[in-house]
């Protein structure tokens, strides 16, 4: 069945700033470390979740974004994520330690989809997951795949977007997709919001 779906909320984290629906809602000094930025954001949004501190940078970014995007999600909210660098930050950390007591707490984060596990635990989502990797955000494909999950009733809503964290920088862009809203969920809208 062909029908329209809607983007009802978007969140973006870049350059130590957090935007919700294009509005700047939090920022720190640009020169502080990403870890410090994340810690300040965690406090600012009152996310009381001690496990946060154990996560790698990709998961911390995803956690903050998902908490800002919406307070609660339906249990069958699908997660469709993409990035360019997979789990590069944790990979590098693990690689440096493989000859000298590798840490299980680091190794567990050497898969990009762990962020979906963390979000699923936090928001109690027992839903569809798919993590894709590409050099640039494939808005067309991500929209297509997400929409097919919704159309086939494999999910009643979805969080989709781009979660990039590499050794130099990060760029996070998540969207909440549901059956009713103002902005039609299309590849064009998604790409426009991503580049904005």
């Amino acid at each position: 069945m062909k029908r329209d779906w809607y983007i009802t909320s978007s969140v973006k984290l870049k350059k130590h700033q957090i935007f919700k629906d294009d509005e700047l809602i939090f920022k720190t000094e640009p020169h502080i470390s990403t870890q410090d930025f994340l810690k300040e954001a965690y406090r600012f949004f009152g996310i009381n979740y001690p496990k946060f501190h154990k996560m790698d940078v990709l998961c911390k970014l995803g956690m903050i974004a998902s908490c800002v995007l919406k307070e609660e999600y339906p249990k069958d909210t699908a997660l469709v994520f993409q990035n360019a660098s997979s789990s590069e930050v944790s990979d590098t950390q693990h690689q440096e330690s493989i000859h000298n007591f590798p840490s299980p707490a680091t190794f567990v984060y050497t898969l990009p989809n762990i962020v979906m596990g963390e979000l699923s635990i936090k928001h109690e989502l027992q839903s569809e997951n798919a993590f894709f990797v590409a050099e640039d955000f494939q808005a067309q494909f991500i929209q297509n795949y997400t929409q097919s999950l919704l159309e086939q009733k494999k999910a009643s809503a979805a969080i989709c977007g781009w979660l990039e964290a590499n050794l130099d920088d990060y760029y996070l862009f998540l969207n909440y997709i549901e059956p009713r809203g103002m902005h039609i969920f299309s590849a064009e809208t998604l790409l426009e919001k991503y580049t904005q």
Partner: peptide, 17 residues
Amino acid sequence: IGLDSIDALELIVMLEK
């Protein structure tokens, strides 16, 4: 204290290291 299974593995590494 609320440690979990990954923490237990991490403690094993700590004991050895």
